[in-house]
Design a protein around this nucleic acid. Structure first.
Lengths: 215, 215
DNA sequence: ATGGTCTTCTTGTGATCACAAATTCGGGCG
DNA sequence: CGCCCGAATTTGTGATCACAAGAAGACCAT
């Protein structure tokens, strides 16, 4: 087949394909409604249909992609109700994660969050939505990792994944000029050890994107 | 994860296998640590390795099964921390679902919940853990369906699935003699339209199993 | 042009196979 | 009796194929 140099023999084929597609979806570089075929994905990653099928089905199982009755796979076009629901889920889970991370958040972590925020500002300046989304997710994940709650973090990531394709559209409308105010509010609350303030900041940050959807 | 439950237009092989294994896991008739093989599952359901593999991988993606580094699949043996985390997730999500269902809960729904509760009592009398778990899940799902929040419900079901194999062990220790008090409390709160009471009742019901784990 | 029908191409499904890695089992040694 | 090493077996992975169903396009009639 396609003779492609394989520098990494360790990760299985389906893992490479899965991870490639997953980050692509989560970072929002696929438009909603875009369709994917087994042979197309296989050709792109230099594998046969088998690993391609497994990757796609897995992403469908995680809600990152949708499958029509005939088995065709495409990125989802979410209804406003679905988006609202997913945002509510983000609020629920991420507020809890932040709350659990708070007592473990030391200065090194806060500094790292500020560094990520700087990268975020750069992405905003460049008007680069993919970099923006990636930095935004990294900001949240970095904080939540401190919560030591892997099942909750996995849940949150699943929600991010489902919102991925729409996220770009959402942030595309947002002509942002500076780092989100709620990120700064989160950092202040972390420094002060202010749990109610942190919870409010996270909830506000998570649901802010939704508000402009309705506007 | 998002089990887009359509009636049944496509009894595809992998769907039959998936559903069979899924209900078996969620209802707790598989012990933790039990291993599953592709050829074994295939033989049991009369299909080849391909649909068996897809089903197992899907269940692994949903957290219902775990996969070792060598690709062996088995039911998970959850640590106490993991169980506690999953219970916290149940509390978070299900309290929200109940809260959203409350304004839509009419008398017909409450009567149905009471009917399910009667079946639950019967399962308790028979000392039948699988029937107990099934009725318990049905009680919760029936209420949450009224919330009109499919993404949240899917999330809750995913958590149930992950807890499935341990659930039996948990409820096995519980020498229960009567219908859970918190189910009755939930019904009272529903009748009274008492949202704080409902939230408390759901949270208590969800986390009660955990408490005896530590005892 | 427009609508419908037929053909053609595309696509997903499930079975089978070769292969490699891991597990298991047996025998022999300390 | 316990431990370790090697062979036999089990098991997952990925490729390929035949097949059916669906989508797309061509073609003709109106």
């Amino acid at each position: 087949m396609l003779t492609q140099t394989r520098p990494d023999p360790s990760p299985s084929a389906h893992d490479r394909v899965y991870r490639g597609l997953r980050t692509r979806i989560m970072h929002g570089d696929m438009a909603p409604g875009q369709s994917l075929t087994l042979r197309g994905v296989g050709r792109e990653f230099g594998v046969s249909m088998t690993p391609a099928r497994e990757s796609l089905r897995r992403l469908v199982a995680e809600g990152a992609l949708t499958m029509s009755a005939s088995g065709r796979v495409s990125t989802p076009e979410l209804s406003n109700e679905r988006i609202e629901e997913l945002a509510a889920l983000r609020a629920l889970i991420e507020v809890e994660l932040a709350s659990r991370a708070l007592p473990r958040a030391h200065m090194a972590l806060i500094e790292r969050l500020q560094t990520i925020n700087a990268g975020l500002a750069e992405a905003i300046a460049r008007q680069d939505p993919v970099a923006y989304i990636r930095a935004n997710l990294e900001f949240h994940r970095t904080l939540y990792l401190r919560a030591q709650a892997p099942a909750m973090l996995a849940m949150a990531e699943t929600v991010w994944l489902q919102l991925g394709p729409t996220m770009r559209m959402l942030y595309g409308r947002l002509r942002r000029k500076e780092v989100p105010q709620f990120h700064r509010m989160m950092i202040s609350a972390l420094k002060a050890g202010d749990e109610p303030g942190l919870r409010l900041a996270v909830r506000s940050d998570v649901t802010q994107g939704l508000k402009m959807l309705q506007g």
